[in-house]
Design a protein around this nucleic acid. Structure first.
Length: 309
DNA sequence: AATTTGCCCAACCGCAGTACG
DNA sequence: TCGTACTGCGGTTGGGCAAAT
């Protein structure tokens, strides 16, 4: 390619050379009008016949990431953030695949979000940090579930979630979960943007009944299980387990949900969601000290992590 | 007020997969 | 079947801007 080394903002005034760098309003307008008349696709042809001195790839990128009418602008909602965490735990850096689950969001946007908000927190993790992070993640997941099940009168406490071990690819450490979580302060209100309700996003079923977990109120939540599968550590609830089992997902060594990166993900769940973690405490019986709540023994977990390295 | 630092995000690059002649 | 063009994806870069010094 004849294009010199990248220099955004340096344009050639030579009509024969391709333009690079930020798009102008005129270029945007030209692209929009062309696509309105001819439709998307055939980007190289578009680039040549539209009069834009851009590559087809550049035109495509501009359209998909910025000009498309259904592109959603602005910050990610809490639901979207949670969904990104969820999907990244399943699929890793499959940004386009993740983007398909977030209507109006582009893979580029999600990728940028992940890199700037999440990976910046990547750092070495010590044992103490890991414990704290594990606690936070666990609480967050509990709170997610609280909304869903608080509308249901049925308590499914202390049910064990069976793990279908295939005897080959799964090494699992599973604990069952006492399911009382107390939330103090004003952290759970239906109208609160920080209210965790991930499943509203992609479910039209029974998750939208407004129920408020107010101060000093407890919610029955479904069992949750922390599972460590091969090199993978993640928080598993029933839906997570399904995806794990059926998608055959495995986290590679670079994945953020691998133990080494676990801290940044979970930390950001708490921090980036602006969730008042300090207001939410596990109930007394679930005190997270030596014995990790939900049956996890952190000594074992940590040892297992080291074995996997 | 000036300079430095760090963050965010749009855009670019290279590569892999697919379509087509 | 092979070669070429096109498309899409994930990783990376660097400009702009706000915060910090």
């Amino acid at each position: 390619m004849s294009i010199p080394s990248k220099s955004v903002g340096c344009y050639s005034e030579n009509d024969n050379e391709l333009r690079r760098g930020p798009w102008t309003l005129e270029e945007d307008d030209m692209l929009i009008k062309y696509i309105a008349n001819h439709g998307e696709g055939r980007w190289n042809l578009l680039a040549m016949s539209s009069g834009l001195r851009r590559t087809g790839k550049s035109c495509r990128l501009r359209w998909l990431n910025y000009l498309r009418p259904d592109v959603k602008r602005g910050n990610f909602t809490t639901q979207e953030k949670l969904l990104i965490f969820e999907l990244h735990s399943k699929w890793g850096n499959r940004w386009s695949k993740i983007a398909q689950q977030l209507p109006g969001r582009t893979d580029n946007e999600i990728k940028n979000y992940w890199r700037t908000r999440i990976q910046k927190h990547a750092s070495s993790i010590d044992r103490t940090g890991f414990l704290e992070i594990a606690k936070r993640l666990q609480m967050i997941r509990c709170l997610q579930k609280a909304k869903e099940s608080s509308s249901s009168a049925v308590s499914i406490q202390n049910q064990a979630i069976p793990l279908p071990l295939d005897g080959v690819s799964h090494y699992s450490v599973i604990g069952t979960i006492p399911t009382q979580i107390a939330c103090h302060g004003a952290c759970m209100n239906e109208g609160d943007p920080t209210f965790l309700n991930q499943h509203e996003h992609n479910s039209d079923s029974d998750h939208n009944n407004g129920s408020c977990i107010s101060s000093s109120e407890s919610a029955n939540i479904p069992n949750m299980t922390l599972g460590y599968t091969n090199s993978q550590f993640q928080a598993l609830d029933n839906s997570d387990f399904s995806s794990c089992a059926y998608d055959g997902y495995q986290v590679n060594n670079n994945n953020a949900y691998e133990m080494g990166g676990f801290n940044l993900t979970t930390t950001m769940v708490a921090e980036d969601l602006e969730f008042p973690m300090y207001d939410c405490q596990m109930s007394e019986s679930n005190c997270l000290n030596k014995e990790f709540a939900y049956g996890w023994n952190m000594d074992e977990l940590w040892q297992f992590r080291n074995i996997q390295k």
